[in-house]
Structure formats: C-alpha cells, structure tokens
Design a protein around this nucleic acid. Structure first.
Length: 475
RNA sequence: GGCGGGGUAGCCAAGUGGUAAGGUCGCGGUCUGCAAAACCGCUAUUCGCGGGUUCGAUUCCCGCCCCCGCCUCCA
C-alpha cells in the first residue's frame, strides 16, 4: 500500500509524494513549544505524533530533515519574565531545558534543528520578509507603528481553515480596540515596542519592536528548509490563524506553494475535558512520573490512539499502557531465551512470518491502533507456538528481528537493566531452599517479604524469576 | 452562527456494502504446592437516534441528538 496522509488543506487522504522523490529527502516543519512554562502532556501528544511520523518515514527509507522552532519571545514570555523580574533569556532558558528533559524522557527523536525566535539570524530574516511583503503591498505599517499583513490582498487566506473572511468580522471574540488595522483579520508581522516590553526589542525599519508570532515560523521554515516544505505539522488549534498566516507570509514572499502536506493532530482531553489548571487536570511529564509511571508508559499511552482522534487521558489508561507493555516485555524475554538456549524436541519449525501489516497500517495515515493490533496478535500467536513447543530458535530470532525493526518506530523497549538487590536475591534463594523442602508456609512468607521490597517472584520452568512491581518498575 | 473532529462491549480502540481486530478489566479453565506469566473459553445478535437506498448497512444517502475543538497569537 502506498503511503498516504490526511491533508488538512484538501481534507482528503492523499498519496504521499515528496517534492524530491528521487533523493528521498524530505523536509518537515513542526511547531514547537512557547517556553513560558513547562509544556503539558497535551503538547507532548502532538510531539509524539510528529515523532511517530518521522520514524515511520525513516522506516520507509526517507531521509527526514525536521525543524522544530522554539518560541522564546511573545506576550506570555515577556509577561513571565517581567513578573519574575529576570531577563527574558534567563526566564525562557529554564523552560527550554525542561522541554528537552521531557523530550528525552518520552524518547522523542530530536529534530535536526531547534531554531529560537530570538536568534538574530531569524530576526534578520523576519525583517527581510516583512520588508518584502510591504513592497508587494501585502503588508502595511499602521498608526500604532506595528506592521500588519493585509489579508484582503492574499486571496487564498482562509483556504486551509476553510474560513470565509467575511465571517471573521462577525465573531464576538475579535477585539474591537484594534482600530489601527484595515481589516479585523489582519495579523501583526511586527509589533511596535511599548513600555511593557521593557528591554525586549529589536531595531527595524519600522522602529523598535519585536516580531509577531506567525512570521517566526515562516522565516525559520523557509530559511532552513527552503521555499517549499514537504510536511508541516501541529495541533488542530494551530490551523487558524497560525498556519493560515504562515501560508500567507511565506507564499507572499516566495510566490511558491509553501507546504505540500498539512498534518494536524487532535487534542488531548483529560477525563473527557480540556486540560485546565482550574480543573485540576493539568499535567506535565514530571507530574506523571511523580505518580510512579515511566516515560515509556506515558509514551505508549499518548501514542496508541490515532492522531486525528481526540485522546482521552485517564489513569486507567496509564495502567492499561503499563499492562500492555508488560505483555510485550514478557514476550521479548521469552523469545530471547529461546534464541539463547535452543531447546531440544522442537518439532516442525513454525515459519516465522513477521507481519508486514504493521508497517502497512502505518502507511495508512499512521494507523497506529491497527498496527498495534497486529503486534498483539503476533504476540499471542508466537506465545502459543512457544507454549506448544513449536517455535524453533531461528523463528524466534526472526521475530526478534521484526521487533527490532518496528521498534525503530515505536521505541518502547525497556532499556534499563534490572538489577536485583542482594537482599532480595538472598531471600529468593532462601525461598528456593524452602520450596525444595516443600516447606510451603515458609516459602510463602518469604514471597511476602520479597514483595515488601517491591519485587515479585515467579516460579518458572527455568527457576525463580524476579521482577519489579508495577509502579516501581524501571524503563 | 460558520468550519472541523468524534459518538463501536465496563473502560480504551481498529474496521468493512455481507454480518464486528486488538488492548485492558472481570469470570471460568489448563499449567502451578499456591501463585505469577502464558495459553484456551466466556463477555457488543450489535456499532448515538430516526428514516431512505439495497437481497443485505455499523459501513452509502437524508434528517436529528450528544461530546470536543477552532473562529486573532493555546499542540
């Protein structure tokens, strides 16, 4: 099956054809965080979706160059810095750092570049683009000294969101105090400095000020990825006005179609509601870790639902994620053991037939739910074969190779070597002795003591096996 | 009001014009000293509601209801 994605622009599933099919190199631009506070798990749902996208494209042989911007200057960052009484750069640095910590915890592949809005290279580029837009009549400086994009001069404005410009005038939420603008929908390219901005300002042909939010992405995207990019992603809430504005600015400057495929991810809900601090359902990655869950468990929980479907985050869902991952872990361990110590008496070697359906499901607009369905079906089938002693080492090895391949996309394997504390190991040994003497009472007491250390002992054919209990498990 | 996304078992969630993947939870069984893990079985005559098309619709069409999002700087 050909690779296809749902393009927000056409609202249709489209076969993916990169700009340069021969080179198999593709450029992806993803809207990153605004570093005014710690990012929440809803933000990370989007980043995990983008991670899945990148990894699957790479599995399919594409060489992906991905850019994710960091917005480190806007109203909120300026306000935050002012309230904290620290320079803007210092204020945002802590959240940049936190962002990268969380990215690591969630095993999100780092973008090739993380341009920051305050980097002078991009400020220069933004100024250059704004000047060009003015010279083409697509932008103007208003009486308030700010520069605005003239949406009436860009006929395609509204095409991505499927908005009718006339409609914009009738919404109640538009601020009517912005009388300086020609059209209520005109958006700021350059915001003139005012007192509240303090020392946050850059010189420009239109006086001191700072860039508008939208122009930053156009500048970075076109500078780092060229005039046309293959895929541009973000959350659905970015469709309007942000991405609409990006199209207007970029195409207004380059005259070329800016983005071939627009992919947008649905929101994360918490307990069926939008995340909000006032509702007490607002979580960051450390909040989840504090509840005893691991990064990979959260990764799984955020990844397992198709990106265009709203995902409802619940603690029950986190437990499901943990159990499902445990199932994968057990399966892998069993296969590894089979490869390591081939048993005699294995009869007909069941031909390992690692399912291509997994990858084909992902080809279909990243249908991760279907892909995981195939994974778990495969797990049950191979487990059954192993139970019946019908899987040989070669087949087990083939399944492991398959896992290794799909895990380049999932990245869900436990990574931390489990180290059993000496005291737990001792107790386990004592318990084995008791069991050999058929002293079941003592054996069960020892199991309880082991349990008190947070470990669980299981008696297998190959002897006792120690695993960490639920929340405390590593990796 | 406009534009989107969604409504499938207790919960999460695929999917198809021909009679419902998978995960999780629960129950029963095999295995086990007992457990655990694994496996087997059971758990939606039914896919928000009402019409229509069809031999047949959860899937297509029409109408309606509910939830969520966007409508100027929230992923």
């Amino acid at each position: 099956m050909a690779l296809r994605f749902f393009n927000t622009y056409s609202r249709e599933l489209e076969e993916f054809e990169p700009r340069d099919p021969a080179a198999r190199r593709i450029g992806i631009y993803t809207c990153g965080p605004t570093v005014y506070s710690r990012a929440h798990i809803g933000n990370f749902r989007a980043y995990i979706f983008e991670d899945l996208l990148q990894r699957h494209l790479e599995l399919r042989g594409y060489k992906v160059h991905r850019v994710m911007n960091i917005t480190d200057v806007d109203d909120k960052t300026i306000r935050g810095a002012r309230e904290a009484k620290v320079p803007l750069a210092k204020f945002t640095a802590q959240f940049k750092e936190a962002f990268f910590e969380d990215v690591e915890i969630l095993r999100i592949k780092r973008a090739n570049e993380f341009p920051a809005a305050t980097d002078h290279r991009y400020i220069d580029r933004m100024i250059q683009m704004i000047a060009m837009l003015i010279s083409r009549g697509l932008a103007y400086q208003a009486d308030d000294k700010s520069v605005y994009f003239r949406i009436n001069e860009f006929p395609n404005y509204g095409k991505l969101a499927h908005f009718d410009l006339a409609q914009l005038q009738s919404t109640g939420r538009v601020k009517h105090d912005e009388y300086d603008k020609e059209h209520i929908g005109d958006f700021a390219l350059w915001k003139a400095w005012d007192e509240e901005d303090g020392d946050v300002k850059w010189d420009s042909p239109w006086g001191p000020g700072r860039p508008g939010w939208h122009i930053e992405c156009s500048a970075m995207a076109t500078r780092l990825l060229g005039n046309q990019i293959d895929i541009h992603c973000g959350g659905v809430d970015n469709i309007f006005p942000h991405h609409e504005a990006e199209i207007a600015q970029s195409e207004g400057v380059t005259g070329k179609k800016f983005v071939r495929y627009w992919l947008h991810c649905a929101h994360l809900l918490v307990d069926g509601q939008k995340m909000a601090k006032s509702l007490g359902n607002f979580y960051s990655v450390p909040d989840i870790l504090a509840k005893g869950y691991t990064g990979r468990e959260l990764r799984y929980a955020l990844m397992r639902v198709h990106y265009r479907v709203p995902l409802n985050f619940t603690w029950e869902g986190m437990n499901e994620a943990r159990e499902s991952l445990g199932r994968i872990d057990e399966w892998l361990e069993r296969l590894q053991k089979m490869v390591g110590t081939p048993r005699r008496g294995v009869r007909s070697a069941q031909r390992a037939d690692p399912a291509i359906q997994f990858e084909e499901a992902l080809d279909d607009d990243l249908n991760i739910s279907a892909a995981l369905g195939f994974l778990f079906e495969s797990i049950r089938e191979t487990n059954r074969a192993m139970d019946e002693n019908k899987l040989d080492a070669a087949s087990a090895s083939a399944w492991l190779d398959w896992w290794k391949r799909i895990n380049t996309v999932l990245d869900l394997e436990t990574e931390i070597e489990v180290v059993v504390p000496a005291e737990v190991a001792e107790l386990a040994e004592e318990r084995e002795n008791a069991r050999r003497e058929k002293n079941w009472k003592r054996s069960d007491q020892l199991r309880d003591r082991i349990s008190a250390f947070g470990w669980e002992v299981r008696d297998t054919k190959d002897g006792p096996k120690l695993t960490r209990h639920g929340a405390a498990s590593s990796g």
